[in-house]
Design a protein around this nucleic acid. Sequence first.
DNA 1: CCGCAACTGATATAGTATAACAAAACAGTT
DNA 2: AACTGTTTTGTTATACTATATCAGTTGCGG
Lengths: 141, 141
Amino acid sequence: MSSGRRPLSQTQERVLALLVAAGKPLSAYDLLHLLRHEGVNAPPTVYRALDRLVRDGLAHRIESLNAFVACSRPHHQDMASFAICDACGVVAEFGDGELQSRLEALSERTGFQAERTTVELRGRCAACAAHGHGHGHVHAH
Amino acid sequence: MSSGRRPLSQTQERVLALLVAAGKPLSAYDLLHLLRHEGVNAPPTVYRALDRLVRDGLAHRIESLNAFVACSRPHHQDMASFAICDACGVVAEFGDGELQSRLEALSERTGFQAERTTVELRGRCAACAAHGHGHGHVHAH
DNA sequence: CCGCAACTGATATAGTATAACAAAACAGTT
DNA sequence: AACTGTTTTGTTATACTATATCAGTTGCGG
Ligand SMILES: [Zn+2]
Ligand SMILES: [Zn+2]
Ligand SMILES: [Zn+2]
Ligand SMILES: [Zn+2]
């Protein structure tokens, strides 16, 4: 039998390293541009590596940004939520037991069987809210 | 002074009507195809109508689907959450005071100032979970 | 009438994601 | 080593989602 899961491939390691280094969400095409120097030059390669990382719980997709971020507590089983600063781009990942309980209670009541839950707060982080970075925007370019 | 907000334009009305009739999320391009018969033939027209409807609280964007759905309780001020069935495509919109309080408490603690909150549950609705529609997928085509 | 704001038309372009198929790499088995 | 099933990669092409830009229009208040 196969004990544990496969190790990451070279590409998967590279993508994860880039996400960790960035410390904020990168789009698949951001990653692709960063990897052009290293022989990766097609979208599917990047998307496949991302699929693996997300399946494995090493990265998350941020739906409201169409982007990906390294998991801050790899392989956790509970659901993840995100607070995303629109001024500086930083993302805080947090787990919230009460939030999760609340959503599970809802499933109980309604019979809806959730397989995946997205919770994303968009706004300003404490630092940016203080600083008068009140109306800036992060640009991907 | 201008009492109340402007009425919806013809295009905006049509887009809203289509969303209501569909009873589930439609992509901007789904709407565009439906409107081709009526002289609308460019994406920006549809996106602009959708912007207006979303700004006005008559429709919501579902981030995890890149699609739009009519609001089930127009103009509500509290945050909306969504349970989306991946088998039959139906979306249930719900407001949950406790959920909202929980998220507001979080903002309080961390200083994060949320301007927009996305809560989306993906899974199977009660009917589909019962029926053994256990592994189907909804296709947009 | 004038000016302003919102909306539209039209064209082009940017950004995000997957389909499909062939080839290579890898691990476990015989 | 040879065989087998699975995973990953390469490559090309294509589909889907969204915005930029600029000109023209419409509706309304001053
Ligand atoms: Zn995580
Ligand atoms: Zn910030
Ligand atoms: Zn609503
Ligand atoms: Zn269903």
